[in-house]
Structure formats: C-alpha cells, structure tokens
Amino acid sequence: MILLKRLLKYKSGSIGLLIVILLLGTALLAPLIAPHDPYQQSLRKRLTPPSWMPGGDPDYFLGTDLIGRDILSRIIYGARVSLMVGVCTVALAGCFGVLLGLLGGYYGGKIDYWVITLINMMWSFPFILLALVIVVVLGTSLVNVIIALAATSWVSFARIIRGEVMAIKAREFIQAERALGAGDLRIMFRLILPNVSSSMFVLATIEFVRAIIRESFMSFLGVGVPPTVPSWGGMLAESRAFMLVMWWLAAFPGLAIFFSALGVNLMGDGLRDLLDPRIRSKA
C-alpha cells in the first residue's frame, strides 16, 4: 500500500498503473462489457468500417474483421489472451529464472558455473528461432506459445537475480543469521528472496511487455495462437495484409498492444525509480 502511494507520486508511473488497472478490468469483465460474442461471425457484415466512418454500423464501434466478427469485442476478449500470455510467461520464466539465479548466486562454485553456462547458452540463441522451433515441434496452441516464450525469457531473471543474490549474500545480516544456525533454504527463500523481490517485479514488467510483443511476432510468422482465438498479436498479424486498404483492421489491435505495453512499461519505470534505479538498465 505504501508502495502504491509512493508510486502515485510519479506522474508517469501512475499513468502506467491506471492503464494496467484498465487492462485488468477489461480482461476480468470482458463478458460484461463486450457488446458482441467475439467468436460470432457474420459474413454479410464483414469488414464494416468503424461506426464513425462512411459505411460504418453503429452496432460495431470499431468495425468488423475478415469474417464479420466485432473488432471491439475481440480486442476486449483479446485482453484476456494477451494478459494470460504475458502473466503465464512471466510466471513460468520468473520461477525458473529466479530459482536458477538464487542457486547460482547463493552457492557459487560449480553450481554457479553451470548456471552461468546455461545463461550464456540461452543468451546466444536468437529468441524467435528457438520459439519457432519449439512451436513447430510441439504444435500450435496457446499453451505451447507460452512455453516457447517462457523458454526464452527466463534468462534475464536468472542473470539479474544471480547478481543481486551475490551482493546480498555478503551482507552482514545474512552472515548473522547463518551464525545463528539458519539453514540454506531458510536463508535463500526467507531472507534473500524478499530482498530481491523489487528487482523481480521490475523484471516481470519488462518481460511481460516482451512476451506480448513476441507473441505478435510469432503470429506474424504463422506460429502464434490459433487464428480463431482472439489475441491482439494474432489480430494484428492477420490484418497486416490489408493495411493499405483497411487501416483500421490493424490499427486497433496495434493500439491495444501499444497501450498495454506502454502502461506496463511506465508502471515498471515507476517501480524502478522507487525501488532500484539501477536494475532496469541491466535487463
């Protein structure tokens, strides 16, 4: 709560927070606020322009897509998919990355050597190729897209958290606890973890934005979430061929991605300013 209050002091941070709350609200309340069923097609009304444009239909505020589904409703439901992609990717990658970072940073030595080597290895793979291979091998589905994204984004967590842990480990209060007989697990998870949580939050916002953007890349390359599922990246990729004819098709999902990325980014920036001014530049 205190954190929230302090965050609100930063103008950009509070704008970011506002956008994020809006995003969460949209996703949670999608069935209530969406004017139409996002899966309901009506071919006869396909490619209707937004309601304020000539040929627009007041029923379809942002117009309809290639098979006559309501774009506004799909964007609203798309918030769920994009949030799910972002949150699940961050959760999976975060858990794995933080765990590796903790182990490497805390134990050092051989364990750390292997953690570092793993990080170096993953860092060398161009993410999109790895994600592409993973999806092609496992098959296209929402879950596999998340797996592919997580498989490439844990590295930043591991790298940064490892560095932080190494720094904290040497501090006095840890040494004191150890002298009092605290076990490794207790030190790692009860003492060190809370101290790196601020970095974790900031990293999570960065990786969240990356996940959303990369999901759109994967749709672009034809290995994203299945086309019937309303995802912003998928909608954007699907309508890109018609950007010269019907700009609105790509514009609104693009704006949705842009604003949510912007919001999470701004919130992350605010958090960084609050918590640790150095962390962001390292990721």
Binding site: I213, S216, F217, F220, A250, G254, I257, F258, A261, N265
Partner: peptide, 15 residues
C-alpha cells in the same frame, strides 16, 4: 524509448 519497445516490429516496418 518506451514507445519503441511497445511497437510490434512488423507493424512499424509496414508503416
């Protein structure tokens, strides 16, 4: 910087 990161690359290229 923030908007650069929030923009899908292929969309920018087509623009």
């Amino acid at each position: 910087g923030v908007s650069g990161q929030a923009m899908p690359l292929f969309w920018f290229g087509i623009m």
